[in-house]
Every structure is written in structure tokens, then in C-alpha cells.
Computed example of a mutant assay.
Amino acid sequence: MRNSVPRNLLIIDDETVLCWVLGRFFSSAGYSVDSATDLAEALERVTHGRYDLVISDLRLSGTQSEEGLIIAERLRAAAPATRMVLMTAFATPELGQRARELGVDLVLSKPQSLPALAEHVSQLLSPAETR
């Protein structure tokens, strides 16, 4: 039985259209959704907000930087129980290892279909006994 209390998601991506699409998709599924499009806004939200799960892109500035890992580190310090999904078109085994060391629950390749992403989110937010 699904909990009737909305789950709080944070979507972080520098592509505002993607934030909007994901926000609409998850809102229509009953989630409460916030978004951030740059590192400063994302860090502010993960430090002061309360989220059940954060979905973040690895690279926010269009450069070779890895802001998603900075966000993961801040999230673990501010809210250790919050689940985190890192999405990137640049996934490597080494990145996956570094992300896991920072507490990222799942690294997914971009693009990711909405139904597949929704299934991952549902699994991460399900009670431990049903996983």
C-alpha cells in the first residue's frame, strides 16, 4: 500500500526543460517536486530543504566539472537518509565508484526513459523490507 503523504523530490539539472518535464511527470504521480538549475541553488536546497530523494545531473555548468558529486557530498552532510540518483551521459566505472563513496544510491545513464526513472525512484523510496 502506497503512503498517501507526498514524497518530496528535488530535481537538479541545468537543462530547465528537463527540470520542467521531470517536475510535471513526478508531480502528476503524486510527488511534491522542487528543482534547481545551478550549483548554488542546488546546494541551498539540499542544505535547507527536506527531500526524500534527489535526482541530479553530474555536470551542471556545461563544462567538464562534476557538480553532482559536490551536491552528493553536501547532501550526505545535511541529510544522510535522503536517497540520491546521479544522472549523466558520462558514466564510467570510476565515476560510479566515486559516487558510491559519496553516498549516491544509483548512477544512471542519460537519457533515461520516464517510466524507467520512475521505477528506480519507486524502488529507492520503498520500505526496506520490500526492496
Rank of each mutant, 00 (worst) to 15 (best):
L102Q: 14
I70W: 03
T47M: 04
L106R: 08
G96A: 07
D38R: 08
G68S: 09
L75Q: 06
E67T: 10
V107E: 06
E94Q: 15
D38G: 02
R45E: 11
Q64Y: 00
G49V: 06
E73T: 12
E66F: 01
G49Q: 08
A89R: 02
H48A: 14
G103L: 03
R59T: 12
T82W: 08
R76H: 05
G49L: 03
T47I: 05
L86Q: 06
V46H: 06
R100K: 10
S56T: 15
G96H: 00
L75S: 11
L75N: 03
R76A: 11
L69S: 00
L69A: 04
A42T: 07
A42F: 10
A42P: 09
A81D: 03
I55V: 14
L106Q: 13
R45P: 02
L43F: 04
I71Y: 09
L95Q: 07
V107I: 07
V85P: 04
L43I: 05
R45L: 12
D52S: 12
Q97H: 07
S65E: 15
G103T: 04
R76G: 03
D38Q: 13
R100P: 00
A78V: 10
S61D: 15
T92M: 00
R76M: 07
H48L: 14
A79R: 15
R45V: 00
Y51G: 14
F90G: 01
R50A: 14
M87F: 01
R74V: 12
T47P: 00
V54D: 09
E44F: 09
S65F: 05
V46Y: 08
E73A: 15
F90M: 09
L43N: 05
G96K: 06
D52E: 14
M84F: 12
M84T: 10
A79H: 13
T47Y: 01
G103K: 03
E94M: 13
L53T: 07
S56L: 09
A79G: 10
L69E: 06
R98D: 10
D52H: 15
L39C: 08
V104C: 04
R59L: 02
D52K: 02
